[in-house]
Structure formats: C-alpha cells, structure tokens
Deep mutational scan, measured.
Amino acid sequence: TEEYTYTDKEKADRAAKEWANRGYTVTVTQDGPTYRVRVG
C-alpha cells in the first residue's frame, strides 16, 4: 500500500482515476486541507 498526499482536490481525483484505470484499488480520504490517495 502506498499513500500520496495532495493539497489540490482536482489533482487527487486525477491521480485516483489514473491508478484505478491501471487496476489498483484506490481510496481517497480528506484530511483537513489535504487529500490522501491510498493505492493498493
């Protein structure tokens, strides 16, 4: 499991979509002003 942190919702959504397109399980959680994209 890897985790990426973004401050921009659009970038987080785009990253999540790209990982999902590659067949990974993706979870996006909002943590205050940041968005965490957990992959795998």
Rank of each mutant, 00 (worst) to 15 (best):
A16F: 05
D31N: 07
K9F: 12
A12M: 04
A12H: 00
T25Y: 12
T29E: 11
A20H: 08
T7N: 11
T7Y: 14
A12P: 00
R36D: 01
G23K: 02
K11W: 08
E3F: 09
Y4V: 04
R36A: 05
E3P: 04
V28G: 01
G23Y: 02
Y6H: 03
T7R: 10
N21Y: 09
Y4W: 09
V37S: 00
R22W: 07
E2S: 14
D13H: 13
A20Y: 09
T29K: 06
A15R: 04
P33Y: 11
T29N: 06
E2H: 15
V37L: 10
T1S: 11
E2R: 15
K11V: 12
Y6M: 03
T25M: 11
R36V: 15
V26C: 05
A12Q: 01
R14F: 10
G23W: 02
E2K: 15
Y35H: 03
T29R: 07
K17G: 07
T25H: 12
N21M: 14
Y4N: 03
K9Y: 10
V37M: 05
T34C: 12
T5P: 04
V26F: 02
W19D: 00
G40V: 15
Y24G: 01
T25L: 11
W19R: 01
E2Y: 15
T27Y: 09
D13K: 08
Q30E: 08
R14T: 11
E3W: 11
Y35K: 00
K17W: 12
R22F: 06
G40T: 15
Y24W: 06
T34N: 12
T5K: 06
A15P: 00
Y6R: 01
V28H: 02
K9L: 07
T25E: 10
T27E: 09
T29G: 04
K17I: 11
V37Y: 01
A12T: 03
E3D: 08
E3R: 05
R38L: 14
R38T: 14
D13N: 11
V28Q: 05
T1E: 12
T34Y: 15
R36T: 14
V37N: 00
R14V: 10
G40L: 14
Y35G: 00
R38I: 15
V28T: 05
A16N: 02
V39R: 04
E18H: 12
K9H: 07
A15N: 04
Y24E: 02
V26N: 00
D31A: 06
R14K: 13
T25G: 05
E18D: 10
E18N: 07
R38Q: 11
A16R: 05
V39I: 10
D31I: 12
K17R: 13
G23S: 02
E3T: 12
P33G: 13
E2M: 15
